[in-house]
């Protein structure tokens, strides 16, 4: 139990604070006297305790990814579990060609995408968004300065707005704008074209803009 507490503390201390830090490889301390690299090596050799340490270090990021991509707590928990089970089974194949967090993250993304493919959600949405929509026309809103969102979005509102995006939009937006994947990587993972990924992202941002404006208007009405 004591080891778990230490892991929790270490996890809290290494929480990534900025987008840059999210992607930058880090030299992590897994537990006192044990670096993350050592924990990985031991976990590769079958050390279950070191695997638990790795779970402690990465559970938050993997769970957040699953939660943002699915917008559902129960599904996110199941997928986090599945991602770490796959990690345990595949950790011996990790060769250190990329950062461990990047490798694990990609594994988790694939677990979520596989799950969503089984549900059939993204494909439907991808096709839907290829159809010309009313949204594609020019914006008619009159651009008074009060209409500009800049400076008015807080984390909670944005998280909520992302959650209410249609699944196809949400996945691309989370992968590109939140997680920092490039369009070519997304296209490869999603099995779609780069153009489709770009188009989806644009529509996702447009939809978010509308959602955030509605939220702001509702707040103003309540005041």
């Amino acid at each position: 139990m004591a080891a778990k507490t230490t892991t929790e503390k270490v996890t809290a201390s290494i929480v990534v604070r900025t987008a840059k830090a999210k992607l930058a490889p880090q030299k992590k301390t897994a537990a006192p006297g044990l670096t993350e690299a050592e924990a990985i090596q031991r976990a590769q050799a079958g050390d279950a305790q070191c695997f638990e340490i790795l779970y402690g270090l990465h559970k938050r990021r993997v769970y957040s990814l699953c939660l943002r991509m699915t917008g559902n707590t129960a599904e996110a928990e199941d997928l986090t579990q599945e991602a770490f089970l796959q990690l345990y089974r595949k950790i011996a194949t990790f060769r250190g060609e990329s950062a461990f967090s990047t490798w694990l993250h990609r594994l988790a993304v694939n677990v979520v995408l596989m799950h969503l493919r089984k549900k059939g959600l993204p494909e439907v949405s991808l096709e839907e968004t290829m159809e010309p929509q009313q949204e594609d026309g020019p914006r008619k809103d009159i651009g008074s300065r009060d209409n500009v969102l800049a400076g008015s979005i807080d984390r909670v509102n944005l998280e909520r707005a992302i959650e209410s995006l249609p699944p196809g939009y949400r996945i691309i937006f989370v992968l590109h704008d939140v997680e920092g994947y490039e369009h070519n990587e997304i296209a490869e993972m999603m099995g779609c074209s780069i153009g489709n990924s770009k188009s989806q992202l644009h529509k996702a941002r447009m939809k978010l803009r509308d959602l955030l404006k509605i939220t702001r208007a509702e707040k103003a009405m309540r005041r």
Binding site: R60, T80, L158, D177, L212
Partner: peptide, 19 residues
């Protein structure tokens, strides 16, 4: 401006919840 702002704020979202 709004679309760029949304993309910038999204980059700053950090994992907040533990499972």
């Amino acid at each position: 401006r709004d679309l760029r702002y949304i993309a910038e704020v999204a980059k700053l979202l950090v994992p907040m919840e533990d499972p």
